[in-house]
Design a protein around this nucleic acid. Structure first.
Lengths: 253, 253
DNA sequence: CGTACAATTGAGAATCCTCAAGAGCAGTGG
DNA sequence: CCACTGCTCTTGAGGATTCTCAATTGTACG
């Protein structure tokens, strides 16, 4: 899934902040036009990153933040024995590299799930700008707060005990993120494999597959490979919170 | 468990940043003496909070950060049907309220697990100071980065499939945090109930209890109610990573 | 069209949850 | 000082869920 249509895909990485359709979701949010232009001067556009290419590796010195411009990414931590644990997925407008803020060294590896583009923001320049532009500092705090609450959502998702609850929560969180991007909240394509989802949720890929099949049979969603269509949003929310089927999830809402 | 001995307990909340033994773990880290004093001027000391008292409630307007000075806290999110999900536990030197940075409204409730003290930092004043003191802004970024990597540790813990792996990871993460505070990494008291741990890990409290009993029988740890003694650190790490029993965990290390 | 990879489906085994009862500990009041 | 109460924690047994192993189907790509 791509944020831009096929025809302009090749030029996405050349668009600068003032013209970027994601600016309202990204760091420029809340900034005045002049301030956005200032921010744009420190942003480096990068060449497109292809599927299965790495953005950076765990342990790399990482002195930049990366904003997803188009496409999607998966982040994971590798243990000493080589086993991977997926930490999360990144969609357009979201910032990667925040985990390196502590020691200037990345704690995870980030890999592209499809051909994607990013903006690179050198942390040193960004910190300088934050001192000069109070709005930018506020926005940085908001973005960091969003990352933290987003991690809390993941913790809640993983703490749910049954596989069906985890899958339902996973789909609802994705749905909300796509809606925030201006896409359909009920119809989207998964850019990650069943294996990725299983690893992320602490399940076997067979269980993930079976849960999709069951939700499909029950008519709650329609699954066609990686294409997902949510037919009954209330039912999906009801799976997570059986007591109040039609109510809004506090952390989904 | 308390960071201060019984005799000085009642005065902990009066100690200011320049004299606080936690300053190296908290916001003053990396600041010059003069800057620490500046920071101290915006810190409000609060009266001690007793066991089961709330620091703040989910949904409250929250325009402060809170640093744990002594004692410990539990944070949780309440669903519409009243069910709780524990998000994490806070020990001395750790910052609470970061989840409210996004919208100025807390997304979780925080409750004291024992008699505890906190420092209150108004966000507006803190932001001003950050603009004036580059070192403080850097430290804020480090602290936020730490919070994010700490959340990633939780995600890894929860993604582990078996109950024994979750419990082992939980104990290792706690051990590391106590060590960072200058306490023993092999002997400490849990300040939270089995129920709290179970809820946090997405397990039933019976399973938590059984896992403790098994680890006790195997001699890996000694459990006496809430008192924990780690007898074989390598074995505990081996449970999390069966392939390399004596190796260091990348995310624990 | 064939190969490689991803996804699905099935069956048996292991793990964990639920329900239920018993044990240990702290605080209260006689 | 001791019994009582309430709470937490532990232990047991049966049932449900999920994992593992294995085979099959489906899809993408050269």
């Amino acid at each position: 899934m791509s944020i831009e249509g096929k025809t302009v895909e090749s030029n996405v990485h050349k668009i600068s902040c003032p013209d970027c359709r994601l600016s309202e979701l990204c760091l420029p949010y809340g900034l005045q036009q002049k301030e956005v232009q200032q921010l744009a001067t420190i942003v480096k556009s990068k060449r497109p990153i292809h599927s299965n290419e790495y953005l950076y590796l765990q342990g790399d010195a990482c002195l930049n933040l990366y904003a997803v411009k188009s496409g999607s990414f998966r982040s994971f931590i590798t243990d000493d024995d080589g086993s991977e644990q997926t930490i999360g997925f990144y969609l357009p407008g979201e910032l990667m590299g925040l985990d390196a803020l502590q020691h200037g060294r990345s704690t995870c590896t980030i890999i592209a799930l499809e051909t994607s583009t990013v903006c690179e923001l050198p942390l040193s320049r960004l910190n300088e700008l934050c001192s000069q532009i109070p709005n930018l500092q506020h926005q940085m705090m908001r973005v960091l707060g969003k990352e933290i609450t987003s991690d809390h959502d993941k913790i809640i998702m993983l703490s749910h005990r049954t596989a069906k609850e985890k899958i339902a929560t996973f789909l609802l969180l994705l749905s909300r993120r796509y809606a925030g991007l201006g896409f359909s909240s009920t119809e989207f394509n998964l850019t990650m494999s069943r294996q990725d989802i299983a690893n992320f949720l602490g399940l076997s890929n067979e269980t993930v597959s079976r849960q999709f099949t069951e939700l499909n049979k029950d008519g709650v969603i329609t699954v066609k490979q990686r294409g997902i269509q949510i037919n009954n949003m209330a039912s999906l929310k009801g799976i997570v919170k059986p007591c109040l089927p039609d109510d809004q999830l506090s952390f989904i809402a």
